[in-house]
Nucleic acid binder design. Structure first.
Lengths: 233, 233
DNA sequence: CCTACCGATCGGTAGG
DNA sequence: CCTACCGATCGGTAGG
């Protein structure tokens, strides 16, 4: 009844990281717990009572903050799909070589997920078929298309080896996802070398001349700086 | 009561592929349906009634073939973890360069999953934490360790770039997994070029000199031939 | 945020 | 392989 609408402003991660978890708004506490438990036992394997118990409240009290279990999952999609998808789109339009844009997009994806205050593993791919998630499914596919488009440009420019853009998308996505999964998103605050590890590995696999990874990395620094300037936080 | 024990001989995939699905043993029909539905909606998102309905039988009849829902999942693990894990172990011991063994292992993994008559996407990583799956969890970790060991040998021999073996394992696993996931395991009978695509991509990312992928691929042909000779089917 | 409670569905059993 | 049925748990509501 008094549940706030799902489609609203997202509190940014900087604000949350600055506070101890007990002082987060209750809604974000619920999101954190749900993300953590969905990541461990899956959406269907986690009950609303599990989430409430972890927060020390009764199960029906959740419904003062979210109108349904699905609404929690939709909120997670905003972080797991919405933010990175919009970022990829922004980066795809920067005036820079495709290899630099790819490096930048991959690196920022991994950094974002590893430094996020909530667990970003909560959205296994089988879940996106859930009834009610059609909108997020479309956004995910749009994200895929953006990555393929950058790869295609790189192949046409001769920067990248002549590779199937959809295969490249799968390879990029797979490496990103497994690294994020293993790194237990939401626990660490510093991403370490993994974002560069992933972006460099992927570029070595895609570049027509793999010895030019260093070049792409340097060009990507400008893309990343531009993105950060345009998106503080 | 009359359910056959879970730990038994696995019918091999050649036998199943030779028959239309209606003539498969009922137990394998159940496995096929479960694999397909687990892959689409997850283990917890699939009910035993869903599986029975798809087979045109009543839900309690399943229990004549499997003692529990978990036992079906355990059987799937034998295909998704047992077979590839044992294969990786066999290949790791072949007398060949590490890069050739890596190429062979990756290529055979992808080929196996894409040509399997059942859907190999049914085992998302969050599921392996399920109570009762501890044995398979251990085997999965042993598989991980085997891959890391091959990478370590390759790095020490100077074949591979000085890369963290665990990161290499994550990269390999991630690409394999995403390609298998997208390819809707169990539908196709011919794997096409994907097994080579994946193995080559991964090797370009790992080799000290990425231009030597062709060399590794040729050396891997011998490893693959040896494996197939020792494991008909 | 609570207690009390709802109908639906879950995995599994009994007995034939 | 069936019908009949079990206790447990599910997401969600009513009403305060």
């Amino acid at each position: 009844m008094s549940a706030k609408p799902t489609t609203g402003s997202r509190p940014d991660f900087r604000q949350l990281r600055a506070l101890p978890r007990e002082r987060w708004p209750r809604r974000e506490q619920i999101l954190f717990e749900a993300a953590s438990q969905f990541a461990q036992r899956g959406y269907h394997g986690t009950s609303t009572r599990d989430i409430a118990d972890a927060l020390g409240i009764r199960q029906p009290s959740l419904y003062n903050h979210y109108p349904s279990k699905l609404a929690i999952l939709e909120d997670l999609c905003a972080y797991d799909i919405g933010v990175p998808g919009e970022r990829a789109r922004w980066i795809s339009r920067v005036d820079a070589p495709a290899s630099a844009r790819l490096y930048a997009a991959v690196r920022l994806d991994v950094e974002y997920c590893l430094e996020a205050p909530i667990d970003m593993r909560g959205l296994p791919d089988d879940l996106i078929g859930e009834p009610g998630l059609e909108t997020w499914n479309r956004k995910l596919r749009a994200w895929y298309a953006t990555v393929r488009a950058i790869v295609r440009e790189g192949v046409e420019a001769g920067e990248l080896a002549p590779i199937d853009p959809e295969f490249a998308r799968q390879a990029i996505w797979g490496v990103e996802w497994e690294v994020i999964r293993v790194s237990h998103g939401g626990r660490r605050r510093r991403a370490g070398t993994r974002p560069d590890d992933v972006a460099s590995f992927v570029l070595r696999g895609l570049l027509a001349d793999p010895s030019r990874v260093g070049e792409a990395r340097e060009a990507a620094a400008g893309v990343i700086a531009a993105y950060r300037a345009a998106h503080p936080g």
